[in-house]
Amino acid sequence: LTVEVTLDGRRIELHGLSEEAHEILRHALERNADDKEIKKILEELRK
């Protein structure tokens, strides 16, 4: 799955996400998580 997010003013596409990762990010974006929170989530998903 692919998600497009804006971090530090740049639009980035995240490819190859699992369903779980996609859901976690989608929920964070829906509640307008800040860049710091999104980065933390991405860091966790990379593990």
Rank of each mutant, 00 (worst) to 15 (best):
1 L>N: 08
1 L>Y: 15
2 T>R: 08
2 T>A: 07
2 T>D: 05
3 V>T: 06
3 V>A: 06
4 E>G: 05
4 E>P: 03
4 E>K: 06
5 V>T: 03
5 V>F: 12
5 V>D: 03
5 V>R: 01
5 V>W: 02
6 T>R: 03
7 L>A: 03
7 L>Q: 04
7 L>W: 04
7 L>I: 13
8 D>I: 01
8 D>R: 03
8 D>S: 04
8 D>W: 01
9 G>R: 01
9 G>V: 02
9 G>F: 02
10 R>F: 15
10 R>A: 10
10 R>Y: 15
11 R>G: 06
11 R>M: 05
11 R>Y: 11
11 R>K: 13
11 R>A: 06
12 I>W: 13
12 I>A: 02
12 I>N: 03
12 I>V: 13
12 I>C: 07
12 I>M: 07
12 I>R: 02
13 E>T: 15
13 E>G: 03
14 L>T: 03
14 L>H: 02
14 L>M: 05
14 L>N: 01
15 H>I: 12
15 H>A: 08
15 H>E: 09
16 G>K: 03
16 G>R: 03
16 G>L: 06
16 G>T: 04
17 L>T: 00
17 L>C: 07
17 L>K: 00
18 S>C: 01
18 S>Q: 03
19 E>W: 13
19 E>I: 14
19 E>N: 10
19 E>R: 08
20 E>H: 11
21 A>I: 06
21 A>H: 10
21 A>L: 05
21 A>N: 06
22 H>M: 14
22 H>G: 09
22 H>C: 14
23 E>G: 10
23 E>H: 12
23 E>P: 00
24 I>F: 07
24 I>S: 05
24 I>M: 09
25 L>P: 00
25 L>Y: 02
26 R>Y: 08
26 R>W: 07
27 H>A: 15
27 H>L: 14
28 A>D: 00
28 A>W: 06
29 L>T: 04
29 L>G: 02
30 E>D: 12
30 E>G: 07
30 E>H: 06
31 R>I: 09
31 R>Y: 07
32 N>M: 10
32 N>A: 06
32 N>R: 06
33 A>P: 06
33 A>V: 05
33 A>Y: 08
33 A>M: 05
34 D>P: 13
34 D>K: 08
35 D>V: 09
36 K>H: 14
36 K>E: 14
36 K>C: 06
36 K>T: 12
37 E>G: 02
37 E>H: 05
37 E>T: 09
37 E>C: 02
37 E>K: 03
37 E>F: 06
38 I>G: 00
38 I>P: 00
38 I>E: 00
38 I>L: 12
39 K>S: 09
39 K>F: 12
39 K>H: 11
39 K>Y: 12
40 K>A: 13
40 K>M: 13
40 K>Q: 14
41 I>S: 00
41 I>D: 00
41 I>T: 01
41 I>Y: 02
41 I>M: 05
42 L>M: 06
42 L>G: 00
42 L>V: 08
43 E>H: 11
43 E>Q: 09
43 E>K: 10
44 E>V: 09
44 E>L: 11
44 E>K: 11
44 E>F: 11
45 L>A: 05
45 L>F: 08
45 L>N: 02
46 R>D: 12
46 R>L: 15
46 R>Q: 14
46 R>F: 15
47 K>S: 13
47 K>N: 11
